[in-house]
Design a protein around this nucleic acid. Structure first.
Lengths: 208, 208
DNA sequence: ATAAAAATATGACAAATGTCACCTGGCATT
DNA sequence: AATGCCAGGTGACATTTGTCATATTTTTAT
């Protein structure tokens, strides 16, 4: 019996997924978490000596969730040395996400763009000790990694909100000129013609 | 027996939802569509005289989909005078969306943020001739409506992609000056200080 | 057919943004 | 102490964007 924990903040998907997977003979959904922090809390509890919480074999988790992202959850699990395996289930195929997920030792990574059968296949494969990565992603996986510096990223993020150069400078405790330089260099690195396009590109690649 | 068509571009949700609903004794999922255009095509076919396609009682549809949005789909159904009822199932509670949906005569509107039971309840209620609108939304429903003109909206959408004034002018067959005027007036209507912020605000309200 | 209202265009100016070359003061290395 | 690197800053200039007042054209209403 494969014991699952599902972490997903979109209630509709969480409930349909949990119900459906639980119908399988070899799978038991032991917990549904609406965010990463709750998932982690359950795992902590279940790993105590005399806990009433059932152990979890596999965590199926979204990435973008309130409080704790799926990637952070995976990192925490690895740090604790728990035997629980992680499968990421997310919307976008952003190279940056995949890279960070792999670094966190996840065993599976697939897109919400795939049908539920694939998730089922992935779960069983991972349960047996295998791995399962969406093939569409493998290509992108090693395209150049995040070319942005930290400051560039921060500036871009604020610019993307509509903040003006001055406001960004204020928030980052930099001079306006420096901010302009950062944004300019970010744009040129990304082959964008202005901050808006740069932010769009960065976001699409999970660099933002 | 309630005959359903589900239109949803996120494959994972589409497949889990379809499988789950189909398990209900009084519901039959007659078609799964991955975008609005396919859904409409099926409905067209099913409304021909001697069609092999089954009639559809209720369409459950997402809003943001490629090719044809859920709202456009609802409008088309109303225009054709088909008896099919529409339930919108979407992520964000944007006042603009709800308003347009109501105008298009939809019978139900609920958020992906609700558990699947609610969808089930809504489907049965609508099948009996009722309506079902997420209560969270009713408050927002009559906040000020879309202040943007069509051109302003289009210009804003392109600006938001990072398109420059000239490029926007080209795409909309307008002069650069006019585009600037539109963006300026859009920004002032939305109390934004530049096109970026204006686009953000418009998007948050479902006006984009 | 005519007047009013809308959509689109122009021009002029201020302000913000993009680009680039070069300056400054740590601070790490040797 | 000398060297070089690096984050941050400056200044100058071109380009783009924002604002507004004022045409011109097209639609709509009467």
């Amino acid at each position: 019996m494969i014991r699952l924990l599902i972490a997903e903040d979109q209630a509709m998907l969480l409930s349909t997924l949990a119900t459906l997977l639980d119908l399988e003979d070899d799978i038991e959904v032991v917990e549904r978490a609406s965010d990463g922090a709750r998932a982690l809390a359950y795992l902590k509890e279940s790993n105590l000596a005399a806990s009433s919480h059932k152990q979890v074999d596999i965590v199926v988790t979204d990435i973008e969730m309130p409080k704790l992202t799926g990637i952070e959850l995976a990192q925490a699990i690895r740090e604790q040395g728990w035997p629980t395996k992680v499968i990421i289930l997310t919307t976008f195929s952003r190279a940056g996400y995949l890279r960070r997920a792999m670094d966190a030792g996840v065993k599976g990574y697939l897109l919400k763009d795939s049908p539920s059968d694939e998730l089922l296949t992935a779960i069983r494969k991972v349960a047996k000790g295998g791995r399962s990565i969406s093939p569409e992603l493998m290509q992108d996986a090693w395209i150049e990694m995040d070319p942005l510096t930290n400051k560039e990223r921060q500036a871009l993020r604020l610019a993307n909100q509509g903040d003006t150069t001055e406001q960004i400078a204020d928030k980052l405790h930099l001079s306006a000129g420096t901010v302009r330089n950062y944004l300019s260099s970010a744009a040129s690195k990304l082959n964008a013609k202005n901050r808006i396009e740069a932010a769009r590109i960065a976001h699409q690649n999970g660099w933002l």
